[in-house]
Computed example of a mutant assay.
Amino acid sequence: MASLRFYVATSLDGFIADEEGSIEWMGPYDARLYGYDKFYDNVGALIMGRRTFELIHATADVWPYRGKLVYVLSSRKLGTVPEGVIAASHGIRAAVKSAGEATRKDIWVVGGAVTMQSALDEGLVDLLEIFLVPILLGRGLTLLNDLRQRQSLLFDGIEAFPDGVVKLRYLVPKA
């Protein structure tokens, strides 16, 4: 059965991007060293917010999620999109349901904060993998905004890498 997963890097002070939405600060850190390829091979679909989609689509030379289904949460038409991108106008629960019907592999909630927060608030998330990157940004886009309720997590492991990156893994208990 597919899991709904967060797999995200954050600065030590809790930011997933700088004020402009850029993740260039992660440039010195090669995601392949932290198991990204294995993770990505187990992903069949991605869910992201419109702003995240637009930023990636506008700045990537090549669409990085080719061959995967990508559900973009948006109440407006998306315009020209890469192959495999699907507008999801009925909310995150409907997008997760559609993704789960389309693949037996895991579903990755890519972001941003509102999308991730919605997935948590709806009780849809199974696993969080958070990579703490040894940098302090001071300001930017936060990992999460305001959750509707506090959520306890079950610790499932930690891994430290020689360059100072630390991977924290948590399971989300179901009610």
Rank of each mutant, 00 (worst) to 15 (best):
A9D: 14
L12N: 03
L33M: 07
V110Y: 10
V114D: 12
K77R: 10
G67T: 03
D121G: 00
G112P: 09
R66T: 15
L12Q: 03
Y36C: 01
L143Q: 06
R76D: 13
V133I: 15
P162T: 09
K68V: 03
I135F: 11
P64E: 03
K174L: 01
F131R: 02
P28F: 10
F6R: 01
A94E: 14
Y65L: 03
T52P: 11
V133G: 11
G123F: 12
V85C: 02
G21C: 05
R51V: 15
A60C: 03
A9L: 12
F53M: 04
L147G: 07
L127I: 02
L132P: 05
V109W: 09
A99D: 08
T59Q: 09
A31H: 13
R32C: 00
P162S: 09
P64A: 02
E122S: 11
A31W: 14
M48G: 01
I47Y: 05
R51E: 15
I92Q: 12
Y40E: 08
G138K: 11
T115V: 07
E54C: 03
L136F: 13
S74V: 10
V72W: 03
K167C: 01
I130W: 00
A160K: 13
T142S: 14
V62M: 13
A95H: 08
L141R: 14
I56F: 10
L136T: 12
E159V: 00
R150S: 13
S152M: 05
M26C: 14
S22H: 12
S152A: 12
H57G: 04
P134R: 08
A102V: 01
